[in-house]
Design a protein around this nucleic acid. Structure first.
Lengths: 110, 110
DNA sequence: ATCGAAGTTCGATGAGGATCATACTTCGAT
DNA sequence: ATCGAAGTATGATCCTCATCGAACTTCGAT
């Protein structure tokens, strides 16, 4: 099996944030662990593997949080070997909710 | 007793949104009933008594929601006779979190 | 002085979600 | 072929929060 289609099989749905109900986006943003993830992506400006985040929760809980962020259209995820890289959907979020990311991550606040 | 000090006794604390943790503001915004309240204030541009809102919950639940919004610094409340008038803190919210209100209430969305 | 309208308080209930440990899968390296 | 690293899936637990009804307060009007 080629690497491309192998990866395809493991790649879950990535809704566009423009299609996600506001309610779901806010529910994703209200958890401080999830905002911590977004903040690391936002501040560093780089893609990051799940394991490289400074998280205070177990691995299974972390997986849950990454799923919630992806399903809200806030991040995309792709496999690189056994790691999973996470990318902040900055452009799309800004287009769908102008000012939201900056408002939520703008203060240095937790 | 003069009306002014009578009213004073019934007036609860009104934190400035700039002093409220982001977490608390987001928790206030994540409930759709509360966003409905904010939206009516935002759209009409007027102060409104609690009873004039188009709410789907009981009176006691409504009281709860107004409290949460006030404690998050999103609205102020003052008594006028037996009614309680609610005012959106537009200027203060915009100053503390530029773009947040528009991002959350901008789409016509529930 | 009474009554109703507008809110509030209190206690109980129920649903959802954050969390974890355990077991499992998938991949790269040896 | 095996092993460890990186994540995922599942089921259980715990806790917070939205909700309600009922009793209460406060005020204006009659």
């Amino acid at each position: 099996m080629r690497a491309a289609s192998r990866e395809q099989g493991r790649t879950p749905a990535h809704p566009e944030i423009g299609d996600v109900p506001l309610q779901q986006v806010l529910e994703a943003l209200v958890d401080p662990v999830r905002r911590g993830i977004l903040r690391e992506l936002y501040d560093s400006g780089e893609d990051r593997a799940c394991g490289t985040f400074d998280l205070t929760v177990s691995k299974s809980t972390a997986t849950h949080h990454f799923n919630v962020l992806r399903e809200a259209g806030l991040i995309t995820q792709r496999y690189v070997g056994t790691s999973r890289m996470n990318t902040l959907c900055r452009k799309e979020v800004d287009a769908a909710f102008p000012g939201l990311l900056d408002a939520v991550l703008g203060r240095g606040e937790a």
